[in-house]
């Protein structure tokens, strides 16, 4: 654990150096992320000029869905961005050089590129989320906040599973990393309450591609709208996605031929 923390810190340090070298790009990307966030927030505030609820959720509840989506997306972008630069390693056979390193290969692949901008952005989002939570028209306690945190962690574990799945599929096909883009685009569906979708959509994005488990379940737990059966379902889906992805990774690694090295 300590060794991996040291490796991560070193990799993060390298990423930081890269960001400080490309200052114009770094500044523009950060402003770009802020603009994207600001426009979506403006959209939500504008919606509430015409109505007082979205599928029964008030302004601050809708904002909480949006902020939780952003927080989870930013955290996963910040920590697991390495998956986006993995495909060339397989195509050029450079995975050979990663496998013998004295560090968990999967950990190295996922975390070798830390996105400093998303780390900063995540901190801002945590502050904004706390401000919005304080304005919710409900009373919540430590239990609700505890479940909110636990379910966010479960959501991040499912996201790790999706990233591992992407890595494993890339090893098998040597070209496809499109599943990560399917996930990235799909996660946007969680930025609003799931009740806006029809029942088929809700089922599909809860149990097949668990977007609502990742984003909506933590919010619903905080709002006191999630029953224990759904909490158990979240736990089961996390085990299924993460465990299944690790097994698939192990099986895919056996297929790696290093053909082009």
């Amino acid at each position: 654990m300590k060794k991996h923390a040291r490796v991560w810190l070193q990799l993060t340090n390298c990423a930081f150096m890269s960001y400080t070298t490309n200052r114009l790009d770094t500044f523009s990307y950060f402003i770009g992320k802020t603009v994207r966030f600001g426009f979506f927030a403006l959209m939500i505030f504008s919606i509430f000029r015409f109505t007082d609820n979205i599928s029964g959720y008030g302004k601050y509840e809708a904002l909480l869905f949006f902020l939780t989506f952003n927080l989870i997306d930013s955290l996963s972008q910040a920590l697991f961005r390495g998956v986006y630069v993995f495909k060339p390693d397989v195509q050029r056979g450079q995975l050979d050089y990663l496998l013998p390193k004295p560090v968990n290969t999967l950990f190295y692949i996922l975390s070798r590129l830390t996105d400093m901008l998303d780390i900063i952005f995540s901190l801002l989002l945590i502050v904004l989320t706390m401000l919005v939570i304080q304005r919710l028209p409900i009373t919540w306690g430590g239990v609700e906040m505890g479940w909110y945190t636990v379910l966010i962690i479960l959501g991040l574990l499912i996201i790790i599973g999706i990233h591992i799945l992407t890595v494993a599929i890339t090893i098998r096909t040597e070209e496809s990393d499109s599943i990560i883009w399917l996930y990235r685009r799909g996660l946007y569906l969680g930025s609003f309450p799931p009740e806006i979708f029809n029942s088929t959509g809700q089922f599909l994005f809860t149990y097949i591609l668990p977007i609502f488990v990742i984003v909506a379940f933590p919010v619903k737990a905080l709002l006191g709208l999630l029953d224990w059966q759904n909490i158990l379902a979240a736990l089961g889906l996390t085990i299924l996605w993460l465990g299944g992805a690790i097994l698939f990774w192990k099986s895919s690694l056996k297929k790696y031929s290093s053909a082009s090295s």
Partner: peptide, 28 residues
């Protein structure tokens, strides 16, 4: 500049929203 991609990223997000690609601008 060799750093043209960052400004492009910023431009693309401004453009997406300001063009009405996410919502009818009438709501504003």
């Amino acid at each position: 500049s060799r750093e043209a991609m960052g400004p492009r990223f910023l431009f693309e997000w401004i453009l997406e929203f300001a063009s009405g690609a996410y919502f009818p601008l009438t709501i504003l």
